[in-house]
Design a protein around this nucleic acid. Structure first.
Lengths: 192, 192
DNA sequence: CCTAGTTTGGAACGATCGGTACAAATAAAC
DNA sequence: GTTTATTTGTACCGATCGTTCCAAACTAGG
């Protein structure tokens, strides 16, 4: 019996994800992908089917990271602090990282989702995860008394989702960071 | 002396803008452009230099429409109502129009601006216009007493900008409209 | 009517696109 | 050491990319 791959498909996918994240689907050519993944065409098509499939895999990988990040945050902070942490970490990443690329999910939502039903479904699922994380945190906070019960939990979660989407737009374009800062402060104040 | 163009460059540019708006820069091929503009290659390059230039022209055209829309709104509504009108009209457009394409400026901010300095500048200018419109409305409202002076005008304008960016993301992806609705309601409540 | 000046419609360009085909290289199984 | 199954590296595919070029079409001025 033969021989195993001498590259790690998971690491290669990680690199593909970063390329798509930075430049988007169309502008990332197969050659760009092969170069950054460090593999050859033959290996690529044997392992990942084609460009479109590897993009979906990259997006699902990103989704998994998001969920993991949420779970980690929830385990380390109070409900209210968890929400604040998500916003502040996003802002800090944008500030510290000179080539910050926003949110892969949001970028894809605008570039590809409107014209690609498969990707559109993945993006919708991703957004739903974010909203339901916020909702879960708010409800938990209202249950333990750290968040006011006067807040409409569902609406507030939706507003937070919108604020986060806006934040990702503003941070990706690297405009005046103080606008992003104002948005994060606002999100914090929302929770009382 | 010769002959004049037998197509209207302005109308052609309008059609190019719609194509770029809907599909973005890269996915819109020269052939797509020529087809939708209804002109031939020769005429295109004689009139618009090249694809990149016509994109910038389209973006500037969009910017002009935005400013015109703001000016019209301001002339017809009170300061506070003007802000609300901008948000509500955006939401209604998204609801009514089955192939709503979000905001050309926001789409471009994510797709092209990070890797294209010229476009990046146009986008930054566009965003600045939006923010300063909100700021102007808030200050006007505070001057005539219709908006509370307790609000920090600059921060509120920034938050509105972020909310509008988020709204454009959510509406373009055509997710659950109620999330967008919650965002618009929130913007309205912001103004007291 | 003729000429000058401009636009128009396409042919054609080299480069690059995503994807396929296939022989050479490789390593485990016998 | 031979066989066998799989991967790997490249050559190559037709299609399409954005752009250039140029002759034919055409209108206005002389």
């Amino acid at each position: 019996m033969p021989w195993e791959k001498n590259f790690n498909p998971d690491e290669a996918l990680e690199k593909a994800m970063k390329a798509f994240w930075k430049n988007g689907y169309e502008p990332t050519s197969m050659q760009d992908l092969l170069d950054c993944m460090g593999i050859q065409r033959g290996s690529f098509y044997a392992t990942f089917e084609n460009k479109h499939t590897v993009f979906k895999m990259a997006l699902e990988r990103y989704e998994k990271f998001l969920l993991y990040w949420f779970a980690q945050t929830e385990s380390k902070h109070s409900p209210k602090a968890s929400i604040i942490h998500i916003f502040e970490t996003t802002l800090r990443d944008a500030k510290d990282n000179p080539d910050y690329n926003g949110c892969f999910m949001v970028n894809t939502a605008l570039e590809l989702a409107p014209h690609d039903p498969e990707v559109g479904e993945l993006v919708a699922r991703g957004f739903a995860h974010v909203e339901s994380f916020f909702l879960k945190m708010i409800k938990k906070g209202q249950a333990d008394g750290s968040i006011s019960k006067d807040l409409n939990a569902k609406n507030t979660a939706r507003v937070l989702m919108g604020l986060m989407s806006g934040l990702r737009v503003l941070t990706r374009t690297q405009l005046d960071i103080s606008t992003s800062q104002a948005l994060v402060n606002h999100a914090k104040n929302l929770l009382g």
